[in-house]
Every structure is written in structure tokens, then in C-alpha cells.
Computed example of a mutant assay.
Amino acid sequence: MADPIEIVRGDITEQAVDAVVNAANSSLLGGGGVDGAIHRRGGPAILAACRELRATTLPDGLPTGQAVATTAGDLPAQWVIHTVGPVWARSEDRTPDLQNAYRSSLRVARELGAATVAFPAVSAGVYGWPLDDAARIAVSTVRAVLSSGVGSVELVRFVLFNDDALSAFRRAAGE
């Protein structure tokens, strides 16, 4: 059987997968980095869906480590799974929150029936998580979830924006 994890350099907004994971902030109303790129490329339907979530089920925003799905708007994916990773802190181990961001995203993907999911490096951008550690947590958490054999997800593609992130994720995957 082929490895269910792919690691590529690219633009996550161009991925033809069932679901793209957005490294969102808790407001769900867009931001910088991956979040801003997904909202810009996906168009107004994503923001409208996020505003609806804020007006109904998530009035206080999406908690760290949790995930929720919306339409993907104009993206080549069917859904966007928004997850909020933790901000890295030297004084506090927030690894469980980062693991939960990946687990929750994969749970939502299973609930949607998604077979292919593209992830960015959650928390490794503006949230400051050290890249090698973020990659190790991401790859090991996703491998553990996929190895359980439960659900529809057959392929997880980590889509990294630069060579440093690509190298870190390849090292974490043992490539």
C-alpha cells in the first residue's frame, strides 16, 4: 500500500482535493498567511459561511484545537476545514492543542466523507511554532490517526509554501 501521506511544495489554494485545511484564527473571518490566501482565492462564499457560523453555532469563535467545515467557494476543493492552532509559547507546552487541531480536522474530514485532505503547517507561521517541532507533531499525529483505519481519509497532503518547511516535513516523515 502506498504511503497515505504526501509532502509537497506548493500553494494550498491550488490543491484539487476533497478538503483543504485552513490554519484559521478563532474569529474565522480571515487573516494573514494561509488564512488570507484561502479567503482571497476562495471568494466571498467562504467568508459568508464563516459569518453564518459566528452568527449561529460559534458566536465566540472557534476554540483552539477545534475544526469546522465550510464551502470551499471558488477553490478546486469541495470543502474548507478551518482549524485554530495554538500560538507557540516557550513557557507552556501546547503540543496537545496542536495535535487536536490535526485530529479535529481529520474527524471533520471523515464526517464529510472526504478521501483527500490538504494541510498547511498549522501554527508554524505567524503563530511562531518552531518548524521542526511543528512538522514532527503534524506528521506523527496524522500518521497515528490514519493508521487507526477508521474513516474515509485515504490521503493527506502536506502543502508547504517554502523550502524550509518542505525540508522540515520531509525530515519528520523520514524521507
Rank of each mutant, 00 (worst) to 15 (best):
V84N: 05
I81R: 04
D133M: 15
A69Q: 05
V153T: 03
A55I: 14
A135H: 06
S152T: 15
T83W: 09
V84R: 08
G128S: 08
P59L: 09
A77Y: 08
Y102H: 12
V150S: 09
A49T: 06
G149I: 00
A121C: 06
L53I: 15
I137S: 00
A109Y: 03
Q99G: 04
A134K: 13
I38T: 03
G65T: 13
L131Y: 02
A118G: 04
V145E: 14
A138L: 05
L75N: 02
T95K: 08
T141P: 00
D133V: 05
T95V: 10
L58R: 13
G113C: 06
A37K: 09
S148Q: 04
R90A: 14
S27L: 11
G32H: 10
A69H: 06
Q99C: 10
G32Q: 10
R103W: 13
A89M: 13
D35S: 01
A101N: 07
R54N: 09
A138Y: 00
G125E: 05
V87F: 07
V87N: 06
L146I: 03
A124V: 11
A67R: 09
A77F: 11
A55S: 15
L98T: 05
S147V: 09
G42S: 11
V34A: 01
V34D: 02
A55C: 14
A118Q: 12
D133N: 10
T70K: 12
R54K: 14
G73A: 11
V84C: 01
V117I: 12
R54P: 02
D35V: 07
G65F: 11
L47T: 13
T56C: 10
G42M: 14
V145N: 02
G32T: 12
T95W: 05
A109I: 13
V142K: 03
V68Q: 13
A72C: 07
V80Y: 02
L28E: 10
P59T: 03
V34K: 13
L112Q: 10
R110D: 15
G125V: 11
G65A: 05
T83G: 01
S147F: 02
A109D: 09
A67Y: 04
L75A: 03
A72E: 09
V139G: 00
V68L: 12
L75D: 04
P86E: 10
A144W: 03
Q78M: 09
P120Q: 07
T141K: 02
P120T: 04
L131V: 15
I81E: 00
Q78N: 09
A121N: 07
R40Y: 05
V150F: 05
V122H: 03
R136P: 00
T95E: 13
R103D: 05
L53Q: 15
A67M: 08
A118N: 10
S148T: 05
T141E: 01
L47M: 11
E92A: 14
D60E: 14
T116S: 05
T141D: 02
R94I: 04
S140F: 00
T83I: 07
W129Q: 04
A118T: 13
S147K: 12
S91F: 08
